[in-house]
Simulated scan of single mutants.
Amino acid sequence: MPVEFLAAEQRSRYGCYAGEPSPEQLVLYFHLDDRDRALLEPRRHAHTRLGLALQLCTVRFLGTFLSDPTDVPHNVVLTLASQLNIADVTVLSRYREGEMRYDHVHEIMAEYGYQDFASQPEHFRFLRWLYTRAWWSEERLTVLFDLAMAHLIDRKVLLPGVSVLERAISSVREHASRRLWQLLAAIPTPPQRALLETLLEVPAGERQTPLDRLRRGPTRVSGPALVDALHRVEAIRLFEMEHLGLSFVPRGRLKALARHATTALFQHLRNLAHDRRIATLLAFTSTVISSSLLISCR
């Protein structure tokens, strides 16, 4: 499974402003409430109040602090300056050059409950959430990445480096997949596993594997299609797989494995690791029985 899976454009947008926030986002993330104002009002200088407000709203919106806290869209600066009654926004240059901005990061984290990505127990909770998501769904890695970002921001956990988050998602997804393959591969008996392996062998005198024939299912409801469906069911029933307990497996994950068996070349399937190969073939046979029985009952 790939460790780095984001496109270059996605990586460049991570943890920074990708254009100006919308009016709705400005209202949601850049409105200073009473708690925010209580933090800002004691500051004597305009550049301190505006810079601190920028850092506060930026971490609320992006889930991270910027190395240059003033590197924000102009409409963000104007929105906050208007709320703070600061007419001259050029004072921000003083904030960018000062050292107080580093102290403000720790102050915001302490006041609003932000935590570093590696801090416990939040890190463990994040990995547990990620594993549960990876176990129950077959979402693309990029989708899982976006969901992980939203989860971290919602939990007030500062986003790590983009590669750190990519590696965490890849590792957890791989772990969940391996566990699924191991559990599925352990269900059939040794004779059943041997029968499943024969799906990838070309019988003597023939040019196709049994898998090639079985995965060409009927595409329409008709008399001949019904006969074909019944033949497929009878062929699969020779493997005695229909009574195996697969209810613990998320249907989406099972269908994804079966779909892989349906589309991949049999040479590729044959080269899979043992547990993954057996799990894929078992998912395929289970799905074929279900779909063929559905057609035969119409």
Rank of each mutant, 00 (worst) to 15 (best):
R193T: 14
V172G: 03
A134K: 01
I278P: 05
K255N: 09
L199I: 02
A225N: 07
V3S: 14
S82Q: 15
G63M: 09
E242K: 12
R35V: 08
D71I: 14
V27A: 15
A258W: 04
D228K: 05
E99P: 08
V288A: 02
H47L: 11
V91Y: 11
E97G: 03
I236H: 05
H151F: 12
D275T: 02
L32K: 07
L196I: 07
L195K: 15
E107I: 01
G205R: 08
H104M: 03
V76K: 06
S222G: 09
F266L: 01
V3G: 10
Y131V: 00
A81C: 09
L226W: 01
H31V: 12
L152A: 02
L244I: 08
T189I: 11
R232M: 09
S290Y: 02
C16H: 14
D34L: 13
Y102Q: 05
N271T: 13
V89W: 07
S290E: 10
A194C: 12
P188K: 07
W136S: 04
R11S: 12
R173I: 07
Y95R: 00
S286Y: 09
D34A: 12
L200P: 01
L184I: 02
C16Q: 15
A204D: 08
D33A: 11
C297Q: 10
H47K: 09
R94C: 03
H106I: 01
R173H: 10
I295K: 07
T219R: 11
H151I: 05
P188Y: 10
P188T: 13
S170D: 11
T285L: 14
S170W: 03
L269E: 03
A168C: 12
I169P: 06
L6M: 12
G19F: 11
G113K: 05
C57L: 10
T285D: 09
V249S: 00
M100R: 13
A176I: 11
A168E: 15
S296N: 00
D34F: 11
E107M: 02
E107F: 02
R178P: 06
E41P: 02
